[in-house]
Structures are given as structure tokens and as C-alpha cells.
Amino acid sequence: MSDIGDMINDMTVRAQSPDKRIRAMLRGRGLPTVSFASPDGYAQYRDVESLASQVSTAIERVMAGVDQGRRALIREKTHLSTAEGPHWDASRRRMHEELRDLKSWGESVKGVVRVETVGLRAWRVRIRPGSLERLKAGEFLREVNSAIAVAEHAHRVNEHEVKAKYLGSFGAPPLKHEVRR
């Protein structure tokens, strides 16, 4: 029987946007990545707002699937539930609330896409107006996936700071959030 960590590392979650033209995928403990369901998927979008909305929802769906999958693995292997209610310890409860509401953001390499997340649950993608006409599909995907990576890294840095505030420094030097372009 493998341990839960190995099973999480082996987990792959896939989701689609409401219009089914965008896919999001996350493998193990990696980053969510976005792709188009068909070669002409990008060309079907006429405005950045609808594309941004569809990408946002696909990311939210894949992250919700990851959370559900992890909870199911824990229940299955430990026969324990992961309680959704408030923690009995006031300090831990404040920490969990702060982590749940943790806001982070990332910007793509060329500054075309900005991704904002709250607790890695709620996601909002913004795309610079005029980008559909200027970028090819592959360029857009590189931009959106780089913004996701920066936002996720920023979240981990912020998460580390919150946990250090409540639990101590873990003996590790603080992480740095650097955006490189």
C-alpha cells in the first residue's frame, strides 16, 4: 500500500471551461496548466473578456477537483474526515482563515495576462485588450501559464509567511517573491 503523499503525487485532475474550448490540468503537486481543446479553440474567441472568464472557470474547476481528490484520498486511506468546520484552537482557526483568504497574483512574462487568486480557490484572469489580435494561440498559452506559475509561487511565499507567523519559522530562511521578466 503506498502512502498518501505518493498517491497525491500520482493524481491527475482535468477540467474544462463551461464552453468546453479550454482545458485545465494539474498533475500531482504541480501547477495547473491551460490548453485549448482543439487547434482552432483560440481563434473562436472574439473578445478578451469571454476568454478570460472561460480560463478562470477552468482553473477554478481543476483546483476544486484537486481539493476533492485529496480529501477523498485522505478519507479512503485514513478513514478520517477532513473537517470543514472551524478548528478548535483559536490561533489555528485564525491561521486557517487567513490562508483561506490569502490573495496572490501573477503577471505573465510580457505583461499580457494577469492572474489573481484567493486561497488558490477563486481565480480571476485578466487579458490586455487587443491581445487576441496580436498573439497566436501558443503565445497566449505561454503567457497565461507563466502568469499562473507566478501567482502560485506568490501564494506559496505568502502561505509560508502566514504559517511562520502562527507556527514559527520552520527553521528555513524566508522565501522570496521575485517576478522576473
Rank of each mutant, 00 (worst) to 15 (best):
V157N: 15
A149I: 09
N145G: 05
V115E: 14
A122R: 01
E107P: 05
R114T: 06
I148V: 07
V118T: 00
E116A: 14
I127H: 02
E133K: 11
S108Q: 02
H87I: 06
A122E: 13
P86F: 10
R94E: 00
L141D: 00
E133I: 02
R124S: 04
G111T: 11
E98Q: 07
S131T: 03
R142W: 09
R121A: 11
D101F: 15
L135A: 03
H155D: 13
V118G: 05
I148K: 04
I127E: 03
I148L: 08
L120I: 02
G119N: 14
G85D: 09
L132H: 00
E98D: 14
L135H: 02
G119Q: 07
N145S: 13
R142I: 05
E152T: 15
L102H: 12
G138V: 00
S131M: 04
Y166E: 09
E97N: 10
V125S: 02
V113C: 13
A147F: 06
G171M: 11
S104M: 14
L135I: 04
A137W: 04
S169D: 08
N145H: 00
L141A: 00
I127V: 05
R156H: 10
Y166R: 08
A147Y: 05
H96D: 13
L99M: 05
H153E: 13
L120V: 04
H160N: 14
L167G: 04
R134Y: 10
Y166M: 08
G111P: 08
F170W: 12
A164P: 01
S108C: 11
A137H: 02
K165F: 12
V113H: 04
